[in-house]
């Protein structure tokens, strides 16, 4: 028993060390983001990369989710003769939960991992050190640009996913209930409130920030060797997905509290 003690305390010790290190990293972001140089060009390039990388998969997933979710919900509603509620049901589910969550998870897999791998490989091949010694702030150039880009782009992608999912849903509804496009979207917009949209955007901003900062953090802290790069990519996906679920749960609590107030 006695020789186990240091192992446990070392693990706990490392956990808290990691936590304080991560905290310092996030804090550094909020301190440095306000000061020039702002690297607009690099931010734009990153935004483009993020959109370009995740668009095909997001389009496909969003569309299929719209179709499948509509199709699977129909029997339950049909029991009450309430299939005319389908557009309302789907739009609430998509805007409040599915759109942001699905987009964020896909982006965590595609964008988060590639940020982790890219920065990780720059770290182990000393490219980050090379910036540092030529008086360029790598945190600004790499971390802040990527994190801002994911923070801005995820909400945009979420809106796009919502739209594509609703389109998928419309096709299914149109085939089965013969509802026209305009009727469908009138119902959609009647059923979603300002709070729904607002909270969805805020949530997406948080998801985007999470994906960016986690990818950068894991990359920045990756150990020497090419093995470290793979680990960084993997760890950033796992970590950001985990945080996204936690954030989703917290957001649910907060939005419900506001709605009931």
């Amino acid at each position: 028993m006695e020789d186990k003690k240091p192992v446990i305390s070392k693990k706990i010790d490392n956990f808290f060390r990691g936590l304080s290190d991560a905290y310092a990293f996030v804090k550094r972001f909020f301190v440095e983001v306000w000061f020039p140089p702002y690297e607009f060009k690099e931010i734009l390039r990153q935004c483009y990369e993020i959109g370009y990388r995740s668009l095909p998969l997001i389009s496909l997933t969003g569309f299929i989710i719209g179709i499948v979710f509509t199709n699977q919900s129909r029997p339950s509603l049909a029991e009450f003769g309430a299939t005319s509620w389908l557009p309302a049901l789907i739009s609430i589910a998509v805007v409040r939960a599915l759109g942001p969550l699905v987009t964020a998870l896909i982006a965590a897999g595609k964008v988060g991992s590639s940020i982790g791998a890219e920065i990780g490989s720059m770290k182990v091949t000393e490219q980050i050190d090379a910036m540092e010694v030529s008086a360029i702030n790598p945190f600004k150039y790499l971390v802040i640009t990527r994190t801002l880009a994911t923070t801005f782009m995820i909400p945009v992608l979420v809106m796009y996913t919502d739209f594509v999912a609703l389109l998928g849903s419309f096709i299914n509804v149109n085939q089965n209930e013969m509802v026209s496009l305009s009727t469908f979207f009138v119902q959609v917009f009647e059923s979603i409130s300002f709070l729904d949209i607002f909270s969805s955007v805020i949530k997406s901003l948080v998801f985007g920030f999470t994906i960016g900062i986690v990818g950068c953090y894991k990359g920045y802290r990756s150990n020497q060797g090419t093995e470290g790069v793979g680990k960084a990519a993997n760890a950033s996906v796992v970590m950001s997905m985990f945080l996204i679920f936690i954030e989703e749960l917290l957001a649910l609590q907060v939005v419900n509290a506001i709605r009931n107030a």
Partner: peptide, 20 residues
């Protein structure tokens, strides 16, 4: 420090070229 760093050229062991 950055001002001083500009006066020092550091050629890395593995070159450390920016691969992007």
């Amino acid at each position: 420090l950055n001002k001083l760093r500009l006066k020092i050229g550091f050629a890395f062991q593995a070159a450390a070229l920016y691969d992007s």
